[in-house]
Design a protein around this nucleic acid. Structure first.
Length: 282
DNA sequence: GAAACGTGGTC
DNA sequence: TGACCAAGTTT
C-alpha cells in the first residue's frame, strides 16, 4: 500500500512540507464533505492571506465566511476561525500536536483530530474517513460499503491494521485514504490498479452487492439549506450591510425565508443591525 | 442515532 | 434528468 502511494500519490499543496500543521488543518476543514478540486483554489488564497492561525484570529469571523466562498457548509469557516482564536490564545499560536487538545477545538471531531495529528505531526492514529472505511470494508470485512455511521468494530479493525511505527502508521493512513479516493471509490472499483487486490476479501468473495436499504438521498431543492445558501450568497457579495428587501428578493416564501434567516443569525453566520440591515459578522 | 448542515460535478 | 457522491461535525 505504501509503495503504491509512493508512486501514485497526488501532489497536493497540503502534503508539501512547507504546508505545516496550519496548512494541514485548514485543508482538513475544507475537505470535510467537499471534493479536492473545489478546495484547491480556496486553500491557496486562504493560506496566502492568513499564513498563521493568529493572522486569521485577528480578523472578524465574517471575513472567514466571505473567504470561504462557495465551498459549502459555511459553519466550517466559523469554526475554523474559532479554532484559530483558540490556538492563538491557548496554544501560543501553534496548532497543537496533542490529539485531545485538537479534539477540543471547534470543528474538529474524531476524524480531523486523527488526521492532523497523523499528517502534520507523524503520529500513530487510526484515521477513519469515508475513503478508509470503504477500503477496510472491502479489503478486510468483505462487504461493498461500510455502515452509515462509524462503528466500534471499524475502530477496532483500524487500530489492529495500523503499523507499529509512528512514521509508517502516518504514511499508511495517507496511503489507505488515497487508495479509497483514487482506486477503490464509491462509484466503482478499479481492481486492476489496486495494490491489494490479491488479498481483497470483497473481491475474493465475488463482490457481493451491498445488502440493505439504499442510503437516504440528500434532497436539497426547496429545503431550508438552499434558502440559507441563497441568503448568505447575498451577504457574501456585499461589502456593505444589506437591507431586508435584498434578502427578501432571493426567496418568495416568507415563513421559510424568515426561518432560514433566523437560523443563520442563531448560528452566528449573519449579524442583524439596526434599521433592518444585515451583514456578515463583524 | 437520526437529522441538519451547502454546493456543484458526475454518470 | 435526477439521484448519488465529496478527507465530517454538531446537536
Amino acid at each position: 500500500m505504501i509503495a503504491w502511494f509512493d508512486e501514485h500519490a497526488r501532489d497536493l499543496p497540503w502534503r508539501r512540507p512547507e504546508a505545516g500543521a496550519w496548512g494541514v488543518m485548514v485543508s482538513e476543514f475544507m475537505l470535510q464533505q467537499t471534493p479536492v478540486s473545489r478546495v484547491l483554489p480556496v486553500y491557496e488564497q486562504w493560506l496566502a492571506r492568513w499564513p498563521r492561525p493568529a493572522d486569521l484570529a485577528a480578523e472578524p469571523s465574517g471575513e472567514a465566511v466571505r473567504a470561504w466562498g462557495r465551498l459549502g457548509y459555511p459553519r466550517r469557516a466559523l469554526r475554523l476561525h474559532g479554532a484559530a482564536q483558540a490556538i492563538a490564545e491557548r496554544h501560543g499560536g501553534d496548532v497543537p500536536s496533542d490529539h485531545a487538545q485538537l479534539l477540543a477545538l471547534p470543528g474538529i471531531g474524531e476524524y480531523t483530530a486523527a488526521a492532523v495529528a497523523s499528517f502534520a505531526y507523524g503520529q500513530r492514529h487510526a484515521v477513519l474517513d469515508t475513503n478508509v472505511r470503504r477500503v477496510f470494508a472491502r479489503a478486510s470485512t468483505g462487504i461493498q460499503y461500510p455502515p452509515t455511521a462509524t462503528t466500534a468494530a471499524e475502530r477496532k479493525l483500524a487500530r489492529a491494521l495500523l503499523p507499529d511505527d509512528d512514521a509508517t502508521a502516518a504514511r499508511w493512513a495517507a496511503a489507505s485514504m488515497e487508495l479509497g479516493a483514487l482506486v477503490c471509490t464509491a462509484r466503482g472499483e478499479d481492481c486492476g490498479r489496486c495494490p491489494i487486490a490479491a488479498q481483497c476479501a470483497w473481491r475474493l468473495a465475488g463482490k457481493p452487492a451491498h445488502q440493505g436499504a439504499a442510503r437516504r438521498g440528500q434532497t436539497y431543492a426547496g429545503t431550508d439549506r438552499q434558502v440559507r445558501g441563497k441568503l448568505l450568497a447575498v451577504l457574501r457579495a456585499s461589502r456593505e450591510p444589506v437591507p431586508q428587501s435584498a434578502l427578501d428578493s432571493v426567496w418568495h416564501e416568507p415563513v421559510q425565508r424568515a426561518r432560514a434567516l433566523d437560523g443563520l443569525v442563531a448560528d452566528g453566520l449573519v449579524e442583524p443591525l439596526d434599521g433592518g440591515l444585515y451583514r456578515l459578522p463583524g
